[in-house]
């Protein structure tokens, strides 16, 4: 029974992590910016669903929640690009400066959300700092209509996950827009010389990144019994780990890594909590253990601007040779 529950958790978390990890890799490989404001998209996506749920008297359809969350996340992404990333890029700032600036943006958004939650709490009398799960009425209606008794979060995560992943696949692989985005990712200067509007495509990439990541937030509020403004931090650690395993370039490997991490996190936690009585807060340590092991055994050398260590040994051998 416990194993079945852990497997269900793994399944739902897989979709949450996939929907938030893939945009992280997509944004890095296209824009070359390691975005530390990524948790903001998840948190705001979740909170848009929560606010809608409160203002629609707990009659929120998934479609409406997804639309609003996607738009909010997307607009935050574009805003970050226009106000922070593009000016820094124009000044020739280093990737580290971009990273630090996005970290600053993370805290601005994070604490702005706290203020929004507190103001709404005073006005509506509901606690937004720890909100229970949100049920989507349209999914409930469909489930009742076809007599499907599975928990709603399985239906929601599967439906939304598949729709988003297939749409993204079609966009990137079957449309001119996707080809242009990949062109920018491969070589920005060459792509610009070929007439691809770099700025517009960058803005579009950030819109998609923010929007898709925000959708993972609406899955989170459907599944989790308690949503707080800190959820982004928990999810983003796994996102970074998955993106890192995918070498910040492969969307497929990132998706597979997200699923593998979700499974590892839940199964290992079940084992540890059963035998050692550990609390759920230790989950992050499990994920980190996996990442750290990979770092030691098989680091993705050179990924994300890393030092290509092995070259040193080869050169040393050549110099020491004949």
């Amino acid at each position: 029974m416990e194993i079945a529950r852990a497997l269900i958790c793994s399944y739902v978390f897989s979709w949450i992590y996939i929907l938030s990890s893939i945009p992280l890799t997509l944004s890095y490989r296209t824009t070359k910016v390691f975005n530390f404001a990524h948790p903001v998209f998840i948190t705001y996506g979740a909170y848009v669903a929560i606010f809608l749920n409160e203002f629609l008297n707990k009659n929120t359809p998934l479609f409406i929640a997804a639309l609003f969350s996607f738009t909010t996340g997307g607009l935050i992404g574009v805003l970050n690009y226009l106000l922070i990333i593009r000016p820094l890029h124009q000044r020739g700032a280093s990737p580290n400066v971009h990273m630090i600036a996005t970290m600053g943006a993370w805290f601005v958004y994070q604490y702005a959300l706290y203020i929004i939650c507190q103001v709404l709490m005073k006005l509506r009398g509901a606690s937004f700092l720890s909100y229970p799960s949100v049920e989507y009425v349209d999914i409930s209606y469909i489930q009742r209509a076809i007599g499907l008794n599975t928990p709603q979060y399985i239906v929601t995560s599967t439906t939304l996950g598949l729709v988003v992943i297939l749409s993204l696949y079609v966009l990137l692989n079957k449309t001119m827009l996707g080809f242009a985005m990949r062109g920018i990712a491969d070589n920005q200067i060459l792509a610009t010389l070929c007439g691809i509007p770099r700025d517009k495509l960058m803005a579009l990439t950030w819109f998609l990144t923010g929007g898709i990541t925000a959708l993972s937030g609406i899955l989170w509020v459907n599944f989790s019994g308690s949503t707080t403004p800190e959820i982004g931090l928990h999810v983003v650690v796994i996102n970074f780990a998955a993106a890192f395993i995918g070498g910040l370039s492969s969307l497929l490997v990132t998706a597979l890594a997200s699923a593998a991490l979700a499974l590892t996190e839940n199964i290992v936690f079940l084992f540890l909590s059963y035998h050692l009585g550990l609390q759920p807060t230790i989950r992050l340590a499990i994920v980190f253990g996996v990442v750290f092991t990979i770092l030691v055994i098989r680091p993705p050398l050179g990924a994300g601007g890393g030092l290509p260590y092995r070259f040193r040994t080869r050169i040393g051998r050549k110099v020491a040779g004949p």
């Binding site: 390691f34 890192f244 050398l301 890393g306």
Partner: peptide
């Protein structure tokens, strides 16, 4: 051994 982003995140 990995890039600045990874160092920061780790």
């Amino acid at each position: 051994r990995v890039g600045a982003g990874f160092v920061g995140f780790t």
